[in-house]
Design a protein around this nucleic acid. Structure first.
Length: 244
DNA sequence: AAGGATGTTGCCTG
DNA sequence: TCAGGCAACATCCT
């Protein structure tokens, strides 16, 4: 469920609850963090960075990572054990099967927003610089590197590589500079397309290559677990070898 | 209807 | 020593 765009949706839903300035009435759940810290704390803001959802208080921030199976419900409950429940006057946030971490101090000291593909502050030039420093890395691994493209996940990886006609086996350093630039641009563009389609519930119908048997050109789609990350790659060797 | 996946961490091994 | 393997998490889709 959760690549960067899905976390934007989560953040927007939280922001719609208008809880900024309200105090935590109670905190429960089977998370290992100290729940006592949360009680009585005044919510400052909801933020996000890549796949991280951030609940910011005065002196610390709760970081939620949904990993592969995480889920959440606002103002309703699931049957399964809750990992973290935050109750405010008139609203309740429930998180399940997720990673919960407490980050001390000012959130600005923990994150560089320019690394988040979905951020207004996304820094494409910085991404280009990072890619330049790892020429032997496969592009399929580079796109999943959260230190370069925070928020990009496996679906985005596959769709971006198809759209820019780059084979996932390519080494970063073998791409012509214009192609690298296009790759970075498309990572951002497709992430926002993903967001729009996810909101419309039409994400899957827009997949060109991910989980497909045939690409839009009717070529065979290959499936392989590539690179250090060994995540599923779907690709058409006929469409994706163009380094012009 | 069993098997795998939109993800990451951390332990174990060689 | 450190990179790779792999389990864990527990749900939903095919």
């Amino acid at each position: 469920m959760p690549e960067g765009p899905s976390i934007i949706i989560l953040r927007e839903l939280a922001q719609e609850l208008k809880l900024e300035g309200k105090k935590v009435i109670s905190a429960e759940g089977n998370t290992k963090i100290d729940l006592e810290r949360l009680k009585g704390q005044k919510l400052v803001a909801f933020k996000s960075w890549g796949k991280h959802f951030l609940i910011c208080f005065q002196d610390f921030t709760i970081r939620i990572h949904l990993l592969m199976f995480g889920s959440y419900r606002f103002n309703e409950r699931k049957d399964s054990p809750v990992r973290l429940r935050l109750s405010f006057k008139g609203a309740e946030l429930n998180f399940y099967t997720c990673s919960v971490k407490l980050l001390e101090g000012n959130i600005e000291d923990h994150y560089n927003w320019g690394g988040d593909i979905m951020s207004d502050e996304w820094d494409a030039k910085a991404a280009a610089k990072k890619l330049k420093s790892i020429p032997d890395t496969l592009v399929c691994d580079a796109l999943l590197d959260q230190d370069i493209f925070a928020g990009v996940g496996n679906i985005i990886k596959n769709e971006v590589l198809y759209r820019v006609a780059v084979d996932p086996h390519s080494k970063v350093g073998d791409l012509p500079p214009a192609k690298t630039k296009q790759l970075i641009k498309e990572a951002q563009q497709y992430s926002f397309d993903f967001l729009k389609w996810k909101k419309e519930n039409t994400l899957k119908s827009h997949w060109l290559i991910h989980t497909k048997k045939k690409c839009p050109e009717e070529h065979t789609v290959h499936k392989a677990y590539l690179g250090n990350t060994k995540r599923r790659s779907f690709f058409s060797t006929k469409c994706q070898n163009l380094y012009e």
